[in-house]
Each structure stands twice: as structure tokens, then as C-alpha cells.
Write a protein that binds this DNA or RNA. Sequence first.
DNA 1: AGCACGCCGACT
DNA 2: GTCGGCGTGCTC
Length: 725
Amino acid sequence: MPIVRVALPVPLPQVFDYLAPDASEADVGRCVKVPFGRGERNGLIVALAAEADVDPARLKAVHHIQRDVPPLPPDWLELAAFVARYYHAPIGEVVALALPPGLRRADGVSGDEDDPLLDIGPAGTEALQAGRRPSKALALLQALAQDTPPWRRNAVRAREGGEAVGDLLRRGWLVEAALDTPGRAASGVLPELTTEQDGTVKAILDAGEGFRSWLLHGVTGSGKTEVYLRLAARMLARGRQVLMLVPEIALTPQLEQRVAQRFAAARIVSLHSGLADGARSRGFVQALSGRADIVLGTRLAVFAPLPRLGLILVDEEHDASYKQQEGVRYSARDVAVWRARQRGVPVVLGSATPSLETWYHARSERYALQVLKQRAVAATMPAVRCIDVRRLKLDEGLSPGLQAAIAQRLERGEQSLVFLNRRGYAPVLSCPSCGWVSRCPHCSANLVVHLADRRLRCHHCGCEGGIPHACPSCGDQDIKPFGRGTQRIEARLAELYPQARVLRVDRDAARTRRQWEALLDTIAAGGADILVGTQMMAKGHDFPNLTLVGVVGADASLHAADFRAPERLFQQLMQVGGRAGRGALPGEVLIQTEYPEHPLYRHLARHDFDAFARMELQARRSAGFPPFSHQAMLRADAPALDDAVEFLRHARRLAAEHAPDGLRIYDPVPMRMTRLARRERAQLLLEADQRSLLQAFLTDWMALLYRQRTARELRWQLDVDPLEV
DNA sequence: AGCACGCCGACT
DNA sequence: GTCGGCGTGCTC
């Protein structure tokens, strides 16, 4: 009687054995429905076993094996096992996170219908000429007629008014086109490559098909995407699949559009958490069955099964959103590199501001390096200058120099951006007479003043209330917002330049994708003169008429406790600086600072990422921080801090008993933001110079910790390679 | 994580 | 006399 080993979505570090009378080796990698406890669960068969690990009398039989979908291949199971092992997460939780929810339910997935290539048929050509009355169907047909055929059905569907695609097919306006190679470019004319781009493409292709990690370090505007597309084209032409990871959902539609335009014949699947269950399952199954040619998505797309995988691309590899910050805390970028090695394919990590880990790997020749120094678009790097604000009288945080620069842009009809990483009107409301400040009742944070909708709001737990008219503590009427956020800057700019159109771009102004796109459209259409924005503005959009970026309040990150703060600040400033002068007009970046001589700003002014990276790595080397050591963080949270700390002390004692030489165990400390949403949090840092030493220890330690019984209100989790310490 | 079992305080 | 508090233990 065959026994199957099933991974179940429970926080237990084991697999569970079941009887499966009709199971065979061909069922490994299939989803199953099994009885569990007194209920039923969906899981994944990860292996066949000859004998059960437990008393055979305890075995139950599986309820149902899902055989409508091809099983997940062995390399995928290995990938899940690796992630479970490396991040010390239960295999069942890894499987639950990697599989689309719909698929896991194992109750029939309609997924793998083909995505046919379409062209305009004779009836369509007739309809275009017939001068019919306007309709949705005709509008779509007309839009398509402006474009180069063929198109994938799904790509047509994704267009504006694309719901009419079925209608067009029924009418015969669109017909199935002949098969084509997916790597063929849609439009005959490709953008010409710069010498650098060309060299990079050649170097990566010439290195062959085997595993290799590449860092593609290209300044903003150097045309990294074009390099990705050329590489992808070659892989598609060879009949291979391409996996392309991007940081955030917000940026995927644009890229998807561009990829779809370039590779009309390719079946493109996009995978991200914003997708409905059905769409996510469909995409996953298309990848699994080998029908999808390109999988484009956010970090969870790294788990897409790809039988013909030929290349992995990780765009903006430094981006923090590749690291999951809850549950299984995996880094999609690191998993991508592992996967490339496992499958023997190249992986290209691209960034204008690489993470110092990646940059170090490239310098120490573990990764191959390709550099793009020139902007592909006809534009020079922006001039970066510090405004020393130490002896200046600021007007709501704006220096005379910055104001003059803005006024000059207004005169010339160009756009300015004031960049400030703090949304709201003011970070706190406070009473000057008794010292009361607006504190969040659930977090160790202040409530932020939002004057736009007259609310006090906690940016950490989301709780909010009205703005009091008098001090809740002493009754003084004279309570004031202290400090500055985007709303306050926006208001002051509107006063200073009444003729200008001031537009705020932050998470409050762009809460939905629709709002965000509307803002981008307004900016692109020249409907704004001055932008006030947070880091949302730093990413990937071209505003040809934007020539000035003013940076306000950056100094705060200069002396932050987190050793990665300078890295993030430099990356952010370089990214936001890259927004200036991407068209024909030269750009200027003005940084208001009290430390105009700070090396970080000096390197930034010279656009010298390498010098900054060398300096920062030197500091990390002497402090023994990553990448010169490897870290893991055990975090605990409970209603009372003492309980969290007590658990970590206990964990530390267990650790000390088993600790090998070379493992550094720090003391449990409250987290920087101790209280969050009514829970108090503490953490315990572990560090070792050798990754293998740390990993071996963690395996033993986790086994001990999983056996501990803890109070019900205490929660803990391990974070391997934590981003925030 | 769920969900049972199980043993002590204030209620129809 | 019971409803329900959460400690403890288990899930193939």
C-alpha cells in the first residue's frame, strides 16, 4: 500500500504521511485533500514513502488527489525544500506561500487554456472600411489596427476596452494567426543600442547558457530594460522561458505593456499578489505546463514553475520589497540566484544603485559585472548641489536657494519636485505649555497630523481620530503641529507661488492604482508645475519636463541607528535625483542639509556610487556587519514587553548551550518601534562570519524552539538575513 | 495554527 | 448545579 508524504499549511516543521491506495510516483508534486485533525486540509505530495514515520495504525487515507493539473516537477519541490531549510520555515508554509491559493484548494482548476495568436481577419478589414456606427468592439478593432499584429488574446484582453475580444473573435474580425517564434520583435524597428548596451548584451550571451550571476550596474536612464529585452529575445528564440522579477505591482503594468509590445508572439504571464485567485492559478499553470514564455512578476513569481527556464532577470535588485517581511521571510532576489544555480541558467541582477551585498559580490568576482555609465537617452547626469541650511532662515523648511530655483523653473515653464519622505501635514501635534504630544495609544509612535482631512493618524497601526481643538492634557488652546510633512510643504508652496499648480504625490494622494495613474497622467500632460512627493516619486517614471529636484529633511537618515540607513538614503537620493532632466533639458538636484561636507552627499554630488559603496563597505568591514558577516534575528512579540524579552532570554540560554565557536549571540533588546498595534516586541540578533556555521546552528536551535511550549499570547519568528536590525 | 480535552469561578 | 475561562496536547 503506497504511502504519500504530504506538506500541509500548518506551522509544524514536519510532513505528514497518508495512505493513498492508487498513488504512484507520478503523483509526487500533486495537490491533495486530506483529513487532518477533525477537519480537512489541502496539501502537496512531496514524496512517496515505503514505510510510515509513525505507527501505521495512525495513518489516514487521502481524500482526493488533484490530477487535472500537471504535478509540480522535482526541481520545484527542491526549491521549496531549500527555502524551508534556509529560512527555517515549515515546508507546508513554504508550499502554501508558493502555490496560488486556488490551485492549493485542489478542487478542479480550469487553468491551461491556450492563449492564441490573433490577427485582423478579412471581416475585420471590411468592418474597418465600412464606416460602421461607433461601438466598443469597433473601437478595440480600430485601436488594434494602429498596431503591429499578431497579438496574444490575453494581451488584447489586457488593453483598454479589451473585454470585447471575445466579441471580435465571434464576428470573425479577429482570427487566429499562424504560429510564430516568441522571440521575434513585434515592430520591425528596435531602439538602437549604445556601445555599452551592446557590449553588455554580447558579454552575457557569449558567457553561454550555464549558471552565472551578473550584476548589471547601470545609471538611471542607461537603458537596462532594453538590455533585459534583448537577452529575453535570445532566450525566447532558443525556445526557453524567461523569468523577470520586478519590485512592485505599481510598476508591473507599464513593463508588461512594454514586454507585450516587444514580443507580440510570446505568451506573457504576470504574477503578483494583486491578482484574483483564478488569474493567479491560470498564470501559474501556464508557467508549469510550459506554455508561458515570459513570467513577469513581483517576489512571489520567483516560485513559478518553469520547465523551459533559460534566464532570470531581477530588476532593481536592491529594492527592499523583494524581501518578504512577514511569515516566511524570504528574499526573492536571493532565491532567484539559488534557482539560477540549481537550473544552470544565468541570472542578471540589475540596478542603478545595487545593494551593497550584490555590489560586494561583483567586486569580489563571485558575480560577473557589467556597467552602463552613459545614459541612453540624450541627457546628462543632473548637477547635484548641497544647500547649507545651518545659518539660513527657512520658510516652512524651504531655503531661499531652493525657492529661487523653483521660481526659475516656473518662469521657464519647467517642473520642479520637492522630495520629502514624510507624508501628512506634520509628524506630531504638540502643546507648548505642558509638553503633551499626540501619541498613538497602540504603538510607540506619534500620531501624524493630516490637515487635508482633519485627522490624527498613526502610520504604523492605522488608527486615527479627530484633531482636538485644545490640549487634552492641560486645556491650552494653543496646540500646534510640529515639524513638516508633504501636506504642509504643499500648502506653503501654494501660498508662495499662487500662480503655480502644486501637486502632491504620496500614499495619501495615490491610495488606489486609479488615483496613482491619474496623477501620473496629470504630470505627464504638464498639468502640474510643482510636485511634492515621497519615495513614491523616486521610482521608474520619466517626466521629461522635470528639471529640478529639491530634497528636504534627508539628514534624519544620516545618523539613524540602522547600519543600512546610509545605503538606503544614497539609493533613494540617487533614484529621485534620476528623475531630474531625463528629457532634453538638463537637471539639477538641490539637497538642503546641515552637513554639506558629509561624504555621502559628496559622493552623491559626483554620482560616484562606487566610491560611496567602497566607503560604506569599509565601515561595515570594521564593524563586522553584512556582507562580512551573516545574521539571523529572532523576534518575539506579546502584549507585555517583559514576556517577549523573557522568551528571548530563554531562547538565548538554549542557544548558548549549543553555540559553536564563532557564533555571536547578542542580548535581547526591545525593537526600535517597541510597541506596534497593542503588542510589544523584542529581538535577539545572531551573527557569524560563516554562513554555513550560522545555518547549522539555526537548524539545531529551531528544533529546540519548536519544542518549547509558550504562552498563547506570545508569538515568535526567525528572520534570516534580516534587512532591519 | 486550529481544535479538542480538562479543571476552577459567577450565573440562568 | 452549568457556561466558559485559557493551560496543555495533538494533528499522519
